[in-house]
Amino acid sequence: MPESVVVDVNVNGVAYQREIEPRLLLVEFLREEIGLTGTHIGCDTSYCGACTVTLNGRLVKSCTCLAVQADGGEVCTVEGLEQNGELHPLQEAFSEHHGLQCGYCTPGMLMASKSLLEENPSPSREEIRKGIAGNLCRCTGYVNIIKAIDAAAVKMQGV
């Protein structure tokens, strides 16, 4: 029997306690233990960034982080972007500017770009490209993704 451990993780403001195997990945915890399937598993090798979430305010690839490492921590996933039925400006901009095709990379793109805009509220196109360099879009829809992030930045600055 593998040893199990109890973890307490706050996800999008909600406290969860689960008994898990220590080698359970954070992304598996999110998807299978608490049923938040917005975070996608893409490459499973930390390359593609589809599983990007924030842990204690820092971007992480949740396929390359154990759930036990998030014990006592705060995780924000794509499900946490929408507030009181209102889409986040980034979500609106992705919709408006066709920043997604198949949508598989979108949760990771949204989390990475949210973190980028928190650090740098009015990034240049070049800085946006660098900000999402850890995220791959297999549809190669980067042009509209960058447009969407740019538009969201302008909108968020204006508020």
Binding site: S46, G49, T52, L55, R58, L59, V60, K61, T64, C65, A112, S115, L116, G131, A133, G134, N135
Partner: peptide, 9 residues
């Protein structure tokens, strides 16, 4: 090293 996500860890 890696990307922003990787550098966070």
């Amino acid at each position: 090293i890696g990307s922003d996500q990787v550098q966070g860890r």
